[in-house]
């Protein structure tokens, strides 16, 4: 292993690498005698990188977090652009979007920290989706419609990954982001005159709500056993989306 090359590579990815491995300073690493360095330094480096970057994180978890980061980047940039567009968001609604924006920015920072060097840079977004939504930042209805779509997609995306992560240290964090996205979704939906919960497959774009009409859960016919209307049962259970389903939605907004 060529340590200098490894460090150069890491430094290119993340200039803060030395801050995170500060308990093994660069000077220390390379001031060992040649023989000692061969043995001790790789161990020290591996150990400190594991701590700093969580390289013991399973590949599957890394993939889930990278996927989540794409969605959080998307939401974060969307709200920041919206809040920075004069005249788009009415004064009465600004506290709502400012609060949502604050959370999305925190989620980006949290996921980037968790991923460390594995974090991808922010993609370049096109919120018109190649012209499909040309008024996204000039028409408030378009903006809030996409906000709802992004939030409900976010809820369904995290939900789809929760079972994949399973018993992993990041599970609780994923769940805690997931329910925040649901709070956001509910608030934006009501702002648009809709119910806070998803009725059947009602919503736009359709891909965001595919499969939400389910009324059987774990082979239990819930309307049948509860007497609650089928519509009520679809509202009572939010359904997951797969990673591929979510990417098919999200990638429309990536240049």
């Amino acid at each position: 292993m060529n340590l200098q090359n490894l460090f150069n590579a890491l430094e290119n990815v993340d200039p803060e690498i030395y801050d995170r491995v500060k308990h093994v300073s660069r000077r220390q690493l390379f001031s060992f005698g040649k023989k000692a360095a061969l043995v001790a330094a790789p161990l020290a480096v591996a150990s400190s990188i594991n701590k700093a970057y969580g390289q013991s994180m399973p590949d599957r978890t890394v993939e889930v977090l990278k996927f989540a980061l794409v969605l959080e980047y998307l939401e974060d940039e969307f709200y920041r652009l919206g809040l920075n567009t004069p005249g788009l968001i009415p004064a009465q609604d600004r506290p709502i979007f400012a609060q949502i924006s604050k959370h999305e920015a925190s989620h980006v920072a949290l996921l980037r920290t968790a991923l460390g060097a594995a974090a991808d840079p922010k993609p370049n977004f096109d919120f018109t989706a190649k012209g499909a939504f040309p008024t996204v930042f000039s028409n408030y209805q378009t903006f809030t419609a996409l906000a709802q779509a992004f939030e409900d997609t976010g809820v369904r995306a995290y939900k789809g990954q929760v079972a994949n992560i399973g018993q992993d240290p990041v599970l609780e964090t994923a769940l805690r982001i997931h329910s925040v996205e649901a709070r956001h979704a509910a608030r934006v939906r009501v702002l648009r005159g809709m119910k806070g919960w998803i009725s059947g497959m009602e919503g736009f774009p359709g891909a965001v709500y595919a499969g939400e009409q389910a009324t059987r859960e774990r082979e239990v016919d819930v309307p049948g056993i509860s007497g609650v209307s089928a519509m009520g049962v679809t509202e009572a259970f939010d359904e997951p989306l797969t990673k591929d389903q979510v990417l098919a939605i999200a990638l429309q907004f990536v240049r």
Binding site: V162, H178, R183, G196, D238, E239
Partner: peptide, 10 residues
């Protein structure tokens, strides 16, 4: 997961 997000919406 299917239920908690509905509680959060509530």
């Amino acid at each position: 997961g299917k239920i908690v997000s509905v509680e959060a919406r509530h």
